[in-house]
Amino acid sequence: MKDRMKLLVMVAVAALICIACMQTVSAETEDAQKKWIKDHTVNVKSTVLLTYEDEYLEITEIYTGNDLKKKTGLEKIVKSKKIPLEIGEIETKNKKEKVLVTKNEVILEDNGKEVLKIKKGEKKVFEKNKEVVLTKESDPYLTTTGIPDWTWPKVSCWFGICWYEMEDPINLVWQNTYKSEVKSEFPPDWTDYPYENTQYVFIGNKWVKADGIADDRYRFFGGHHARLWEIPGDTVIGNAHHDDAVFNYPIGHQVDDYEGAEEKVSNFYLNGWNVEADNLDLSNEYFSPFYNAYNNGSATLISK
């Protein structure tokens, strides 16, 4: 009897030691990830240039600053994107909102009030200081779960070295399925060809481009948007968010909601799928810089 009690005590002690070790390893991993982000955080001056030429609205953002030079060796990073515009009035979901495009100018109206006018050749300049997380192509942020935690647009390539910027947290994971099946559950009025900046995740040993889908191609006055990736193991991951209006400062879409968009997309899978809200801890809790949009760090898990 005494020997049995001793054995039980030894097993219990071993279990407690194992739990303590696991907690220690988990804490060390989390600390290492936090340190990685801190080491890759760069303070920059952001200058946004907005121009209209040849039926394209061009948005150029330039990063400069001493911290950028010190941590990356780059004098500046230039990010540029063009939004194609057709002459005439562009349809929006809200009929009170209008985007009127002529050969000489772009006019935006909200409820009959002009909110922005850009003439051909005119340049509007906006400046702001901000923090960004940047990393080289060869130095990806590595996850401990096997599931990428963040999305990354490619922001610069210089002398064969490409740089990526941390953007959005992954907040949706589908298991035992494929991307085509996941996309088939989105409403038919969502477009498979949205205007978006290209983003990547690091899978295996390479950076993989996203497949986007949105409730409106341009989302001039805001809208829902998701990016999807297939990863090994019959798994699809994604980020769902809601964008603000293109012409809110800073010019170009900014995320103003994560959690509501995560719930909205997960509701597409209530029939024939198993939906477990906030079931998978990815440790990517986040507040967006402009709207304080919150991601709680746990992804909704959806499976067949």
Score class of each variant (00 low, 15 high):
Val99Gly: 00
Ile62His: 01
Ile118Tyr: 12
Val48Leu: 03
Leu100Ser: 12
Leu57Met: 07
Thr102Gly: 04
Ala27Ser: 13
Ile83Leu: 14
Thr51Pro: 02
Ile59Trp: 04
Leu85Gln: 02
Lys136His: 10
Ile59Asn: 04
Ser26Ile: 04
Ile77Glu: 00
Thr145Gly: 03
Asp67Ile: 03
Thr92Glu: 13
Lys93Asn: 13
Asn66Tyr: 08
Lys130Gln: 14
Glu61Phe: 02
Glu105Cys: 03
Asp110Arg: 15
Glu122Pro: 09
Thr144Asp: 15
Val132Ser: 02
Thr102Phe: 09
Ser80Leu: 06
Thr151Asp: 03
Asp67Trp: 02
Glu109Met: 12
Lys154Gln: 10
Lys103Phe: 10
Ile62Lys: 09
Asp139Met: 10
Leu100Lys: 15
Ile83Lys: 10
Asn129Asp: 15
Glu28Ser: 13
Glu89Gln: 10
Glu86Lys: 15
Asn66Ala: 15
Lys35Trp: 13
Gly146Asn: 06
Cys21Thr: 08
Glu86Gly: 14
Asp54Met: 06
Tyr63Pro: 01
Thr143Ser: 15
Glu122Gln: 14
Asn43Met: 08
Thr135Gly: 11
Asn129Ser: 13
Lys69Ser: 07
Asp54Gly: 08
Lys82Val: 01
His40Leu: 05
Thr151Pro: 01
Trp150Lys: 02
Lys128Ile: 13
Ile77Pro: 04
Asn104Val: 01
Glu28Asn: 14
Thr151Val: 11
Glu137Asp: 09
Lys103Val: 07
Ser80Glu: 14
Thr51Phe: 04
Lys103Gly: 14
Leu57Ser: 00
Lys119Met: 12
Glu127Trp: 03
Lys128Asp: 14
Ser156Thr: 04
Glu109Lys: 13
Ser46Tyr: 08
Asn94Glu: 15
Ala32Lys: 08
Val115Asp: 09
Ile62Gly: 08
Ile87Arg: 13
Gly73Trp: 01
Lys120Glu: 12
Tyr63Thr: 04
Val106Ser: 08
Glu127Phe: 07
Asp67Gln: 05
Thr92Phe: 07
Ser26Asn: 15
Leu68Gln: 04
Val25Gly: 01
Leu74Phe: 03
Glu131Met: 04
Glu137Thr: 02
Glu122Asn: 07
Glu91Ser: 13
Lys119Val: 10
Thr102Lys: 11
Gly73Thr: 06
Asn66Leu: 11
Pro153Ser: 01
Trp150Phe: 06
Ser138Arg: 09
Thr29Val: 15
Thr102Ala: 08
Lys70Gln: 11
Ala32Pro: 06
Ile90Glu: 15
Lys81Val: 10
Trp152Ser: 08
Leu134Asp: 00
Ile59Gln: 05
Ile77Val: 14
Glu58Pro: 00
Lys124Ser: 02
Lys95Cys: 01
Gly88Gln: 02
Ile107Thr: 15
Leu134Lys: 05
Leu116Asp: 04
Ser138Asn: 15
